[in-house]
Write a protein that binds this DNA or RNA. Structure first.
Lengths: 351, 351
DNA sequence: ATTAGCACTCCGGAAGCGAGAGTGCTAATG
DNA sequence: CATTAGCACTCTCGCTTCCGGAGTGCTAAT
């Protein structure tokens, strides 16, 4: 029952086992119904078998321990961020994603075109659906991409399309303006020659090579290097998201919060906030409320995992929701999707 | 002052020139402040110089003509869809986009990587920004794409990446599973041979060719044809959108409407609804409220234009907002962006 | 044709009110 | 000693009520 991997290793308050049951029920009930939960309803609806008065005492203790709070003098308790965290750490029975969902998801992936971009897209859609929240997925990036192949296709006398494929099967296309007109024959020749020399290298290795004499060749090399380097930098990574409807449907998350989240997702702020916090172990990580790095995220809960092939290509995938979210389901979904995407990457990458 | 091109050619009611002034003021004021406008405020704030009583009479006439309506017995008038339409047709002084904005926009386009996908993305962002609404942009599609070049890159013994470039400089990449292992040398040979035969052709023309004997070659051809055909069908065209924040900021557009719009934008329903309505002349078109084809759109206003090179590649670009939106600004923005994108396409496509 | 004046209507926010739910405390109970 | 019934108290929420302000149509005067 201990899941130290799911988050911060802060020591948690000691509470009795019955208090744990109460806390668990409060979290589940509040997540489910959205209303603070009181002693009476708890003693009746739960199978705990003690009277409301006893519950009240336990609740008082839980409140003293900082795990729940009462918004108003009367009106039941809701979990604090710390309460959620305790729940996620110690109280969550981690079920696998239901087999029905698993089958449905695999089926969808079989339907779709075999294409990285489509997978990422689909992963976002599926994740949003199964977790019932906003999902966030980045395309996988190689740690240090190596050039596998590149191609120059003349579009106009002074304009060509440079397509490069990395060893990790990522594709990038860039338009190149020539300083002077170049014909297709020259392009093909150039591509052949240069490809032979630099394929298998990283951007840094290409840059370190001795300079070639030919001006055009040097120019192409520079472009290739720049494009390859573009794949390295995580800064411009695009964050796919999906499922904003789910968030808007939440009553407590009116326009303002959704707006903030949108702003964060656009422009990479989200990634920059989350990424440095991500430890490198492979399992799902959870950030709840004020544990989040960015102030703008302190009303959200984040369940996130990396995926891909360790040391080769990795992407990020997770869900964002209100702190009051179904962490169990989200964790199952994220974990499953991360595994699935990793498998797909493995199929693609290694023989 | 007549702009018959902006929408439906329905005949409009005859109203006096003073009524036109009143209507214009009502639309502008309502768009700006979001509250119904009454006779008193209008007579004071506008430079019209008549008393509120006179305004009331004029308003009654406008209401009889179906151009404005009173939501409640007391509480001012708001424009009807028909009123907006009249405004857009006859009352709008169409200014060009301010020079400052133009410069700013061009600057941004110069900053960004020369790449079609980036342009589309940027166009969406810029349009949302300048129009202050949700923007919608599709990547340009050729009417009938012709193959310019394609490339086969082996990833694994039985998996290869098929990259094809059309005459219009669009790129598409598809993964191909071989029925049996094929090595890179064979791939290159295949690509060379086949490319020579089918480059310059459309999907239909490729399909019509006599069958080649070699099984693998036939397989490749089928894949190429399918991929090329995929570029023809508009069904799966992805609709980029941006600026949802702007919509959420509107008080009257709570979660429900935003949700509906999101649903529409996802899954291509939006395109399918708007596309058949689009006439083929090149200028901006406006759909207001119940003029919209889809019932789901009847609370929205749409300002949209095609862009690209006539008969060659065309895309769609526009903004969606509440019927109460600043049509003038939106039209300027859309028109300008359509021109800009068309110019960029022209640079790319023709010599 | 325009406008001042008037009686009327209706929205929207403030205030009031009771029901329901929840709380802490105390005293009784096993 | 833990548990629980009972009680007095508090607070929210939804309801009504109640104006003030803004807007309207109509009529009569200019």
């Amino acid at each position: 029952m201990s899941h130290g991997h799911l988050g911060h290793p802060d020591e948690m308050p000691d509470i009795t086992s019955r208090q744990r049951v109460v806390l668990k029920f409060i979290v589940q009930e509040y997540v489910h119904r959205g209303r603070p939960v009181g002693s009476k309803g708890l003693s009746e609806r739960s199978a705990i078998g003690v009277s409301s008065a006893t519950i009240r005492n336990e609740m008082a203790d839980l409140e003293a321990a900082g795990l729940v709070q009462a918004l108003h003098t009367s009106g039941g308790r809701i979990p604090t961020d710390k309460g959620y965290r305790y729940f996620v750490h110690h109280l969550l029975d981690e079920a696998e994603l239901p087999a029905v969902d698993q089958i449905m998801i695999r089926h969808q992936f079989r339907q779709v075109e075999v294409q990285l971009e489509r997978w990422v897209e689909l992963a976002a859609a599926v994740l949003a659906e199964t977790a019932g929240n906003v999902s966030v997925v980045t395309a996988p990036r190689p740690a240090v991409p190596r050039l596998r192949h590149f191609e120059l296709i003349g579009l106009q006398p002074r304009l060509a399309l440079l397509i490069l494929v990395t060893h990790e099967s990522l594709v990038r296309q860039v338009m190149v303006h020539w300083p002077e007109p170049v014909d297709q024959a020259t392009l093909s020749r150039l591509a052949d020659v240069i490809a032979g020399e630099v394929s298998g290298l990283t951007a840094a290795e290409i840059a370190a090579r001795p300079r070639v004499a030919d001006g055009t060749a040097r120019f192409v090399l520079a472009q290739v290097e720049a494009a390859l380097r573009g794949l390295e930098t995580v800064g411009d990574t695009e964050v796919r998201h999906s499922g904003l409807q789910n968030m808007l449907a939440q009553p407590e998350f009116g326009g303002a919060d959704a707006q903030r989240l949108l702003d964060l997702l656009r422009g990479g702020a989200f990634l920059n906030a989350v990424l440095p916090q991500l430890a490198h172990h492979a399992d799902v990580q959870v950030f709840i409320g004020d544990e989040n790095p960015s102030n703008d995220l302190h009303r959200f809960g984040i369940v996130v995992s990396t995926y891909g092939i360790d040391g080769e290509v990795t992407g990020l995938l997770g869900v964002v929701g209100p702190t009051r979210m179904a962490y169990g389901r989200s964790i199952s979904s994220v974990r499953y999707m991360a595994r699935l995407m990793s498998d797909l990457m493995a199929d693609l990458y290694s023989a």
